[in-house]
Simulated scan of single mutants.
Amino acid sequence: MDKGTVRVHENAGADAAAAVRHARFGRLPEPVRVEDMVEERPAVAPDPARNAFDPDEWLVRYCL
């Protein structure tokens, strides 16, 4: 086998690999907006009993 023939086959494989690489990675992905990167959710579910305390009710109940 001639060394020149082997090199032709190696270049063909490299060119094919380069074409596959360019087809996959040849362009940048679409830009992502900052609003789409951040998701805002409350850390815990709101507790309805948290704001149910009435300080005036305590005064009326124990001081009068």
Results as ranks from 00 to 15, higher is better:
D2T: 15
K3Q: 14
K3T: 15
K3G: 14
K3I: 13
G4F: 12
T5R: 04
V6A: 10
V6L: 14
H9D: 09
E10V: 09
N11I: 13
A12C: 05
A12W: 11
A12F: 14
G13A: 12
A14R: 08
D15G: 04
D15C: 06
A16Y: 13
A17I: 06
A17S: 11
A18W: 09
A19N: 12
A19F: 11
V20P: 00
R24E: 11
R24N: 01
G26K: 01
L28M: 10
E30R: 01
V32R: 04
V32M: 03
V34P: 04
E35D: 13
E40R: 03
P42R: 14
P42Q: 13
A43G: 03
A43Q: 10
V44K: 09
P46W: 05
D47F: 02
D47I: 08
D47Q: 07
P48M: 03
A49G: 02
N51R: 05
N51F: 11
F53H: 08
D54R: 00
D54F: 00
P55L: 02
P55Y: 05
P55T: 03
D56S: 09
L59E: 14
V60C: 01
R61N: 00
R61K: 07
R61Q: 03
R61P: 04
Y62Q: 00
C63V: 12
